Amino acid sequence: MTVADSPTRTKDPGTSGPKPLIDGTRGLPQQVGVYVFVFAPLLALLAAVPFAWGWGLTWTDVAIAAVFYVISGLGITVGYHRYFTHGSFKTGRPLRIVLAIAGSLALQGPVHVWVADHRRHHAFSDKEGDPHSPWLFGTGPAALVKGFWHAHMGWLFDRSKTNAKRFTPDLLADKDIRRIDALFTLWGSATLLLPALLGGLLTWSWWGAVTALFWAGLVRVGLLHHITWSINSICHMWGNTPFAARDRSTNVWALAIASFGESWHNLHHADPTCARHGVKRGQIDISARLIWIFEKLGWAHSVRWPTTRRLERLAKAG
């Protein structure tokens, strides 16, 4: 039984049916938080180009932004996605905690919330029940535009919450993850204020703190948001499909580096627990390389690497 399959088979004690997909709705503070976390970085991203042309961007800002982009981005791809969602490898408590905190710095939600949505996505990929499929409204031009918006970011404004008791009972039972998720506001503040602190200290100026907050905080978060959301939208609409998946997942080479290998999405949906998504020659997968480093250092074990035999079986005939 795979991680993607198991949530659909979890049943309530004393009942004969599966647990519902939805578990209530987000309260007003949570809903306001979604709007803030989505639109504040987005507005910063839209303002970035004219802002850069005139003033305010330095190599210090670029360096700090790059460091936090890598830490928070790999926290999502290696931590939230390949480890917590799919169990592509196993690790000990220290790295488990580090990955959870690093992913939280991306401002994409607490661990169990992100994982519940993603496991639900795999259980119902591109079908009714998928929280962010672009194919739920039809195949006409207007339907595809609506589907793209929904898959990219529109789904975030749906107040219904994926049932965590159904999809993430393992994380709800983990005391470390519960504590980390309870401190999500702290991690959200840190991901914006730490770049500002570094910018101020490195330039020894308040202006350096302000520009670092903007570029390495807001703009970096906004960019990472849209790269992540592009896997939900673009990588289910356009691209190539060398492997046989049960949905419309595709590979999009142009997003490979910025997404740390997540845009080799077709193989991922064909083999969700595989630790490497870019399995063909020339397919750069930075997340898989980091997992390989963890394995060599003895920090990760039981890594689910692809095998030639399995890839041949998954490849499309002809």
Rank of each mutant, 00 (worst) to 15 (best):
T25D: 10
L192A: 07
T8Q: 11
R313N: 05
T10R: 15
F214L: 11
L193V: 14
G138M: 05
S263I: 05
H277R: 10
S133F: 05
A182M: 05
W149G: 08
W207L: 08
L255D: 07
V252M: 02
A182G: 13
D61L: 02
I180E: 13
T308R: 11
L197F: 13
A66E: 06
L57G: 00
L197D: 06
G188F: 11
E312M: 13
L223M: 12
Q30T: 11
G17L: 14
L223I: 12
P7H: 14
S287D: 05
G147F: 11
H118G: 12
V98H: 01
G239H: 02
P141F: 08
K90Y: 00
F157K: 04
P7M: 14
S133P: 07
P131N: 13
A65L: 08
S16V: 08
T203G: 06
A65H: 02
A48S: 14
I257S: 06
D247I: 04
P195T: 12
W55V: 05
F37R: 13
P141L: 09
A4V: 11
T162A: 08
I284L: 15
G138A: 08
L171H: 01
K161P: 00
I257K: 03
L194R: 10
Y80K: 02
I286C: 01
V113W: 15
H81M: 07
A65W: 07
I97W: 10
A143F: 08
I101R: 04
A315Y: 03
H265N: 05
M1A: 11
G147P: 03
E128V: 15
F260G: 01
A315W: 05
H225R: 12
I180Y: 10
T228M: 04
L46R: 06
T168V: 15
I227M: 07
V252D: 08
W155C: 07
L186M: 11
L99D: 11
W55R: 12
G298Y: 13
T191V: 13
F260T: 01
D181R: 02
S133N: 05
G200Y: 08
D158I: 13
D12Y: 10
T241I: 06
V115Y: 01
G222N: 13
V210P: 03
A245Q: 07
